[in-house]
Design a protein around this nucleic acid. Structure first.
Length: 225
DNA sequence: GCGACAG
DNA sequence: ATCTTGTCGC
C-alpha cells in the first residue's frame, strides 16, 4: 500500500508527543463508514519477543471472514512501551508490513486505541493518516476516559467519555465478557466503528480479523530472506 | 502533588 | 505485551 504522512521514527518521547500534537489536527473522526460498501477488512497486530517485533496484517472478506492475505514483518523493537506512545513502538514494523500488503482493505482494525487517547491520536489514528483509509481502534483495556455500566448482553454499549468529550464506546462483543473499547482511528465515526466491530465479532470477544492477526503475529518463525 | 496508564 | 499449569465450562 502507498503510505502518506511518513516521518522519522528516531524521536525522543517529548518529540513524539510534539509530533502527536501536530498530527492530531489532521485526524477525521466524525466520518461515517459506508458499511454497505465494505468488502475487505484487515486486522493488525504486533507481538514482541526478545527485543524483536513481529507485525501481522490479516485481510479477510466481509462478511464471511474468508482469508484473503497475510503479511508479516520483523524488526528490532525500537522504542520502549510508554502509555500514550504505542505507535512509536509498533509503527516502524507496521510500516514495513503495510508496504508488503498487496490487497486494499476497506477498513483496518487495530489492537489499541484510536482517538480514545490522551491526545486523541492513538495508534489506529496515527496509522490511519498513513493509510488514508478508515481505521478503527479496538482496545482490550482502557487507556483514558470513563464509562457507565452497560448491559451484559452482546451488543450492549456505553459512551466512553474523557474531559467532557465522547471519544468512543465500551462495547460488549460477547455476552458476560469484558467490553472492548472502540474508537474511530481516522476516516470513521463512533457509531459506524462500533457497528462494524460488532459485526466482525460473530463468536469471540476479539473481532475476527484481529484474532487472526494476533495468531499470525504470535508465532515467530524466521521470515524467508 | 498523587494516581492512572493501549500493548 | 510476556512469563506459564491446570482447570472450569460449552
Amino acid at each position: 500500500m502507498q503510505l502518506h504522512h511518513r516521518h522519522d521514527w528516531n524521536l525522543t518521547p517529548s518529540e513524539a508527543i510534539a509530533l502527536q500534537q501536530q498530527l492530531r489536527t489532521e485526524v477525521l473522526s466524525d466520518r461515517p463508514i459506508d458499511l454497505d460498501a465494505v468488502r475487505l477488512v484487515a486486522g493488525v497486530d504486533v507481538s514482541v519477543k526478545n527485543e524483536q517485533s513481529q507485525a501481522a496484517i490479516v485481510v479477510v472478506t466481509y462478511p464471511g471472514f474468508l482469508l484473503v492475505e497475510t503479511v508479516l514483518a520483523q524488526r528490532p523493537t525500537p522504542f520502549p512501551y510508554v502509555p500514550g506512545l504505542l505507535s512509536f513502538r509498533e509503527g516502524p514494523v507496521l510500516e514495513e508490513a503495510f508496504e508488503k500488503l498487496k490487497s486494499e482493505p476497506d477498513v483496518f482494525l487495530f489492537d489499541g486505541m484510536g482517538i480514545a487517547h490522551p491526545r486523541r491520536i492513538g495508534i489506529a489514528s496515527h496509522m490511519g493518516l498513513w493509510l488514508q483509509r478508515p481505521t478503527i481502534g479496538c482496545g482490550k483495556t482502557l487507556l483514558c476516559g470513563r464509562y457507565k455500566d452497560l448491559g451484559e448482553e452482546k451488543g450492549s454499549a456505553a459512551p466512553l467519555v474523557d474531559r467532557k468529550e465522547t471519544i468512543g464506546v465500551a462495547l460488549r462483543t460477547r455476552t458476560a465478557k469484558n467490553p472492548m473499547f472502540i474508537s474511530p482511528g481516522h476516516l470513521a465515526d463512533i457509531p459506524t466503528a462500533a457497528e462494524l466491530v460488532l459485526r466482525c465479532s460473530p463468536k469471540y470477544r476479539l473481532p475476527e480479523p484481529i484474532r487472526l492477526a494476533h495468531n499470525a503475529a504470535g508465532q515467530f518463525s524466521p521470515l524467508p530472506a
